[in-house]
Amino acid sequence: SAVANPEQYIKHPLQNRWALWYFKNDKSKSWTENLRLIAKFDTVEDFWALYNHIQQPSKLGYGCDYCLFKDGIKPMWEDDRNKLGGRWLMTLNKQQRHNDLDRYWMETLLCLIGESFDEASDDVCGAVVNVRPKGDKLAIWTGNCQNRDAIMTIGQQYKERLNIPSKALIGYQSHDDTSSKSGSTTKNMYTV
């Protein structure tokens, strides 16, 4: 007689429930109308079921985004959990759409759902990938731009996970500075 192995039928719970959002840039609609919730999940298996089912970022059209956020946090600056926060931002060159974008995005998702930043994971609100003609962007959003220790932990671990060379710096910018900037660049509060 066979003994059932729980490993084969029990899904693996995640620390958090996550929501995947999709943004499609339709100029005839408002920004919020263009933002759609795709699905929520709270197990490893349900994450993969969703991930395996959707397009990779490199196949999305220009102006499209994916956002993965903790359940209850909307992927916008205005959300109470985001408004004091900021983001670690990775700007990719055009060549990297073919070489790195999809791999980086998957790695980002695994960092989030696996709680890779230990206690600093509590500071994570979500992650965003923007597909843009000038170059794609990846970001991890955190909840409070003053939490230096947590932000530095997240930045260092993230850079390591993506295998970014140590001499290539990535920057953290507050949403406040990003939303009020006048030029095309926002100053970095932190770099790793």
Partner: peptide
């Protein structure tokens, strides 16, 4: 409380499991 942490190796193994 305890935090449920999964490393990338485990997460990737779950992708191909039945």
């Amino acid at each position: 409380g305890t935090r449920i942490i999964y490393d990338r190796k485990f997460l990737l193994e779950c992708r191909s499991s039945p």
